[in-house]
Design a protein around this nucleic acid. Structure first.
Lengths: 114, 114
DNA sequence: AGTATTAATAAGAATATACTTATATACTGA
DNA sequence: TCAGTATATAAGTATATTCTTATTAATACT
């Protein structure tokens, strides 16, 4: 694990990405559990392209990474991001969002690939 | 000092404000030292209205507070902000910007009201 | 009072952002 | 190979953001 401290411009770019409630929730959620695109669509009641575009921004910036598993693509926090510590310090301070995943689970809408 | 943890929406709003490099630098600087508007204008090579508008956003959100001292208005980090801890945790992780104030000082451009 | 200085506000323009709908791509399983 | 599902991309639109210039407000100094 690396502990690069971001310069001002880098920090501002990361914070701008996190400064959208959908993306902030996504990052918080993937920091707690892997999650796939269609789950986010359900969670946030947004269209699939809208979610996909948020994920792309996060991926392009190196905040999240993806793994395909069958027909699903799962997103997780990118553990190799040079600014992982910075990102974690920020998201540690907001409330856990796992309750949202539990709601999905209760509706039988969680995706499982085992 | 209060330790209210921001909910997701509140956190996103704060992060959006910090997600602009000018505002992030302003907040970092006022966390280290009081500073007046014309100093920011010099520091960032921006017009006075542009700086004023950034300060207004930060003030409206409660992140900074102002005190008039003579003809100058000094800004500082708002120590009574309910989310002070959150804000401080974020800005502690970016590099100190006092070198910028030292450059101003070297040019004899710092404002002093004593 | 009159002028200079500092800062805020207003109005408008250029750009960025976050959606929408339509379409393309990639994988799965019959 | 074909149909179904999951995801990405493209193009367009509405709105938000961040500047610009012009003006106003407040204070200081003579």
């Amino acid at each position: 694990m690396q502990i690069t401290s971001p310069d001002l411009d880098t920090a501002a770019n990361i914070l701008k990405l996190l400064g959208d409630k959908t993306r902030l929730a996504i990052v918080k959620i993937v920091s707690e559990q892997e999650c796939c695109v269609c789950e986010f669509v359900d969670l946030f009641q947004m269209t699939q392209p809208a979610i996909s575009q948020h994920l792309r921004k996060l991926k392009d910036a190196g905040l999240v990474s993806e793994t395909r598993r069958g027909q699903w693509i799962f997103y997780s926090l990118n553990k190799t991001c040079p600014y992982l510590t910075f990102i974690q310090t920020v998201i540690e301070q907001i409330p856990s969002q796992t309750f949202k995943l539990e709601e999905l689970e209760a509706q039988g809408k969680r995706i499982c690939c085992d």
